[in-house]
Amino acid sequence: YWSHLSNVQSWWNFRHLSNIQLFHYSDMLADTEREVRRIAAFLEIDVPEQAWDGIIKAISFKEMKRQGELYAPGGGQFWKGGAETFMHKGTNNRWRDVLSDDELALYDAACSRALTPDCREWLENGGTV
């Protein structure tokens, strides 16, 4: 897990460069259209205004869950319960309710070793970078 945190930190360190843009899942949930428009702008994709409603509907969690086999890695075969399990609820921070106090302490220690405080804050909560 520590190596994954170090990877996030390495991207965080270069977030100021014009060819790097970070996006967070919780921000996508909070305002999908805003974030997808931000992605399109970053990639310099000109999307016709009349296409936005269809795009936002197509990438909604509800629609993606309905077609989970298309979106889950390996069609969901790696998870007990398949794509339904992979796509579960579409919420963030569910892991906090699953881990024990000892596991949470290990997570905290790994974060302290691998992440700067501002990177950790963004990784756990999202927000404008």
Rank of each mutant, 00 (worst) to 15 (best):
N13T: 05
Q21T: 05
W12V: 03
F42H: 12
R94Q: 14
D102V: 07
Q50S: 12
Q9L: 03
Y107Q: 11
N93V: 09
N125F: 05
E69V: 07
T128K: 13
D31K: 09
F23A: 10
K89W: 03
D118A: 09
S26T: 14
K57A: 15
G126H: 09
T91N: 12
N92L: 07
C119T: 01
N93C: 11
V129Q: 11
F86R: 04
S100R: 04
F42L: 04
S26H: 02
R96C: 07
L29A: 05
I45V: 15
D108F: 06
I55A: 09
E84R: 13
S60G: 06
D102Y: 06
L99E: 06
G127H: 08
A105Q: 14
M64K: 13
L123S: 01
R113K: 14
N125G: 09
K80Q: 13
K65L: 13
Q9T: 00
W12A: 01
R120C: 14
S60L: 08
S3Y: 00
F23Q: 06
S100G: 13
T91D: 08
Q21Y: 05
A72C: 11
W12Q: 01
E44Y: 02
V47A: 10
D27V: 10
G82F: 05
D46I: 09
G54A: 13
D118S: 14
N92Q: 03
E103R: 10
N125K: 14
S3C: 02
G82L: 08
L104T: 07
S6W: 00
L106N: 06
I55P: 05
V8A: 08
T116D: 11
N92I: 14
L5F: 13
G126L: 08
G75E: 04
I45P: 01
S3A: 12
D101M: 05
N19W: 05
E69R: 08
G54I: 05
N7T: 09
E103F: 01
Y107G: 00
F23L: 14
N19R: 13
Q21P: 01
Q77V: 11
G75L: 09
S18I: 06
G68C: 05
E33Q: 15
L104Y: 02
E84S: 15
M64G: 06
Y71I: 13
F14G: 02
Q77K: 15
L104C: 14
C119L: 03
F23E: 11
Y107R: 14
W122T: 07
D97I: 00
E103I: 02
E33R: 09
W79Q: 06
E33W: 08
N92R: 09
A72L: 11
E44G: 10
E84W: 02
E121Y: 04
E124D: 13
L17Q: 15
N92G: 01
L43I: 09
Y1P: 07
D108N: 12
A83G: 06
L29E: 07
T116V: 00
N13S: 09
D108L: 01
A40P: 10
I45G: 03
H88L: 08
E49H: 11
W12I: 00
C111I: 04
N7P: 00
H16S: 15
C119H: 01
R34H: 04
K80I: 12
A109V: 08
V36D: 01
R120H: 04
K57L: 10
E124F: 09
E33N: 08
A30P: 00
Q67K: 12
I55M: 13
E35T: 04
F86G: 10
G127A: 04
